[in-house]
Nucleic acid binder design. Structure first.
Lengths: 132, 132
DNA sequence: CTGTATCCGCTAGGATACTG
DNA sequence: CAGTATCCTAGCGGATACAG
């Protein structure tokens, strides 16, 4: 097990997401982007087919789902398994790396869902005093 | 301590980030958006002033940093403390809620930075076989 | 220093139609 | 079912100028 999470300051890695040109920033955006996080979250409950994903991630268009899946597959987070049957059947599932990322993301999502009352209260206060 | 992370299926909350109209989706986007994640990550190491933040989050423009900070403040994740001195001095720091969110985000970021070799290897494989 | 205001290009992303 | 192709637009986000 690594100490990375426990001691950020002691890290000595070639990648730094705070740096402008680091490739890790692009991957972070795939993961945390508008649809990436939701797709990973959905797949963490098990493999899903294209249209199952579309229904689970309410509001995503075919185009964006397709694009998102390609990016995540390219980054090695999602595995695409196509069967050449008719009608075609394609299953998407997480890789081990994807599972770790999705687990962390889902932890964040669930914490957020559980904190929304606080968030909405904060918003009302902010708006009530005129957004200063 | 809550069971939320341990047992997603047993949750029974009024908020569902997978639903199209749920306000939690908007907040998730503030948190995981292009700049939100980096700002929260930067502030988790301590309070920072506006231009300190700009330097730490390399590449962010004044406009987007300002916008991001407002959104995070409104959601109750960031606290803004202005001193009416001359020259003015404004410190930004995390609220307790913001600290929890930022901690989880930072865990994800550090895990990602530690996995970038795998990610880049996956990308090379994907590209080598022509992106199928 | 800490921002806001304005202009504007670019592209993320939605709608629709079509293919295998 | 599982996508790709095309068109189109709202708004993200950068650059610059200005203000308190």
């Amino acid at each position: 097990m690594n100490r990375i999470d426990e001691c950020p300051a002691a890290r000595n890695l070639p990648y730094d997401v705070f740096a402008k040109e680091c490739p890790s920033r692009g991957t972070l955006e795939h993961i945390t982007g508008r649809w990436g996080a939701l797709v990973l979250g959905a797949l963490s409950e098990g493999s899903l087919r294209f249209n199952e994903l579309r229904r689970r991630v309410a509001g995503v268009s075919e185009k964006m789902l397709s694009q998102t899946l390609h990016a995540l597959e390219r980054d090695g987070l999602v595995l695409r398994e196509a069967q050449t049957t008719n009608p075609p059947r394609v299953d998407y599932e997480l890789t081990p790396l994807g599972r770790e990322v999705a687990g962390r993301l889902l932890g964040l999502i669930h914490f957020l869902e559980g904190s929304m009352d606080d968030v909405l209260a904060a918003r009302r206060r902010y708006d009530a005093r005129g957004g200063r």
